[in-house]
């Protein structure tokens, strides 16, 4: 078996013909995403397993105490590790990062880190000396298309799930004590907004030469492509939005040109799904919180009266 299996002409043609008839091979609508199956760890904070169709991802958030950058003494450190091993697909090389992998890592980084979705100033402990260093590890286990959307969603979910240990500052600001999670309740991270990435793939089933924009354009757009759809696509765009209708990042790297009003159209259409996914994160996290509250009987530890 060769490492780089290409999709056969038969499969490709079958797929395009199905698209022309308005059908997707897994019976989804063109603008429908696969439903995510979420599993949050009950024993530790910050570990999430996410199944998105057949794409599988395990995300872990960890925190260490370190020294901040000299020119940013008030900010904590935050990084996202996004290496893809050949476990996900033999096509991915263990030793070298292919262009694909680098693009995936960059888009996720732009969407989450550079958009300041995590409040870095809230990570400061002692200005100029000690700050929290948050690391998100994305471990892709199985590849069935769309690592970007799944990675971004998984990372945001794990960041919501994670709680860092409580800290006390002693000795007039000289020393800190890190409290064990059994001793004091850990503290959640301060997340300013939730970016959600959505990837649209384009196909031009008509004649390649007449790819003119105007009344004749009949490009087909699919949301959340799986592996076959990704291999056959001729272009893609990643739109990252949050619930406040803010455009976080936009990425179109080559591929067939699309018309500009389609771009706006897709952004509008995406809002509904962005809302749904953001709600899903909040719902899953609050359900998990509630279960934990009941299980550990935290009501007994509450000091204030229940109003």
């Amino acid at each position: 078996m060769s490492r780089n299996t290409e999709i056969s002409t038969n499969e490709r043609t079958y797929f395009i013909e199905a698209l022309k008839c308005g059908l997707r091979l897994d019976s989804r609508r063109f603008d429908e995403i696969r439903e995510p199956q979420i599993s949050l760890s009950k024993t530790e904070f910050g570990y999430v397993e996410l199944d998105w169709g057949l794409t599988k991802l395990a995300v872990r958030v960890s925190a260490q105490i370190g020294k901040p950058y000299e020119d940013r003494p008030f900010e904590g450190l935050f990084q996202i590790n996004c290496e893809i091993s050949s476990m996900a697909w033999a096509h991915f090389d263990n030793s070298k990062n292919s262009n694909e992998e680098i693009l995936i890592a960059r888009i996720i980084e732009k969407a989450i880190r550079r958009s300041n979705s995590l409040d870095l100033e809230a990570l400061c402990i002692i200005a100029g000396e000690k700050v929290w260093n948050i690391t998100v590890d994305l471990n892709f286990l199985n590849f069935d298309g769309n690592f970007v959307d799944v990675g971004c969603f998984g990372a945001m979910l794990a960041l919501h799930h994670f709680k860092k240990p409580d800290i006390s500052i002693v000795n007039g600001g000289e020393d800190i004590i890190v409290h064990d999670i059994d001793e004091r309740q850990p503290v959640p991270l301060s997340i300013l907004h939730v970016p959600i990435c959505l990837t649209y793939s384009f196909y031009n089933p008509g004649n390649k030469e007449s790819n003119l924009k105007g009344e004749d354009d009949d490009e087909i757009y699919l949301l959340d492509a799986n592996l076959i759809e990704e291999q056959v696509r001729e272009g893609s765009i990643v739109v990252t939005l949050n619930k406040n209708r803010e455009l976080i990042q936009l990425s179109k790297n080559g591929g067939i040109p699309i018309s500009a009003n389609v771009l706006l159209d897709l952004s509008f259409k995406s809002m509904k799904i962005v809302d749904e996914l953001t709600e899903l994160i909040k719902k899953v996290i609050s359900k998990h919180e509630k279960e934990r509250y009941e299980e550990l009987n935290l009501k007994m530890l509450e000091v204030g009266a229940d109003r």
């Binding site: 570990y47 260490q64 091993s85 471990n139």
Partner: peptide, 14 residues
């Protein structure tokens, strides 16, 4: 390829 998801190698993270 072996991927550890949950590891029991350290008593605390630090």
């Amino acid at each position: 390829v072996v991927q550890f998801l949950i590891s029991d190698s350290k008593r605390t993270e630090t």
